[in-house]
Design a protein around this nucleic acid. Sequence first.
DNA 1: CGTCTGACGCACG
DNA 2: GCGTGCGCCAGAC
Length: 118
Amino acid sequence: MSRKHLATSTSEMDFFQRVYEVTRLIPFGRVTSYGAIASYIGSPGAARMVGWALNKSDGQAVFVPAHRVVNRFGLLSGKNHFSGQNVMRELLQNEGVDVEEDRVVAFQELFWDPAKEL
DNA sequence: CGTCTGACGCACG
DNA sequence: GCGTGCGCCAGAC
């Protein structure tokens, strides 16, 4: 059977697709971490892969708000992978997320944990 | 086909 | 309490 058919559950999708799906569910003005996503999709410890997947998210048909994903310290570790130097920061500030020194100021408050919120 | 390298996070000393 | 090492898995060389 073709594995391209519309998946009815996340278990039908591969790692990358799961990353994209969860990332799209991050609410406007909120942020989460690579590790939180990895853990939620059933691959705890595969935080690096989440970053790798988001890097490739550029070519996705549906927009993936990769700028809402930061590392566990709230640092914009992936900002260098956007088209411009401060694109990631601008996108976040555009949503009302305060960023200082490449770091989400109210990270703890704005943190959105898929395991808890979903 | 073996090895290195990541948008990370943790266990261990 | 901090530096070092390694696992996660896929892609580049």
